[in-house]
Each structure stands twice: as C-alpha cells, then as structure tokens.
Amino acid sequence: MSFLLECPRCGSRPVDEFAYFGEVTRRPKGSASLRELTEYVYFRDNVAGVQREWWQHRTGCGEWFLAERDTRTNEVLAIHLPQPERAQAGGAE
C-alpha cells in the first residue's frame, strides 16, 4: 500500500502516516445474542469494492475520520469527519 490519503485537516499525505482501524461496524445496542455479538466482534464484510472504513492521521494531526475506499484499486472516493452518535441523537430530540 503506497497510495495517498487525504486527511480532512492536513490534506493529501502518504498512507503510511495513517493508522487503519478497519471497516465501519454496527455495534449492537442494549443487549446482543451470542450470534449478534460474534457477528459484530469477529466478522467483517471484506468487500471487493467500496468500503467505509476508519482511519486516523496517526503521525500527523491525530484526527479520526471515515473514508470510502475501493479495496480493489485503493481509490479513495470520499473522506469525512464522523457524525457522532450523540450529535445524531441530539438532533432527533
């Protein structure tokens, strides 16, 4: 992997400045059956195509953000700062 990735704060940088934190997962709320828990903790879609994933500009500004990346070509189609759960919930109230 040697592609360039855009940090929402710092702009385009070599990917080795960033930490990858895997695809965006769905965390069960309240309680979860063993199946749901296992699904969430251990299973990943691992798509050949566009994937939403977490990145951190680890050796740069430290920002956490989301990227939509084509896993086949490493083309990054979009990046954005996360919409925190509580901000969303707050908006709904």
Partner: peptide, 13 residues
C-alpha cells in the same frame, strides 16, 4: 490514547 479518541469519535462526548 488512540482508543479513547476513536471511541469518542464514535460517541461524541
């Protein structure tokens, strides 16, 4: 530190 920051990016406290 990264773990705290990541969860707070998810939750937004």
């Amino acid at each position: 530190t990264a773990w705290f920051e990541w969860w707070n990016a998810v939750w937004g406290y």
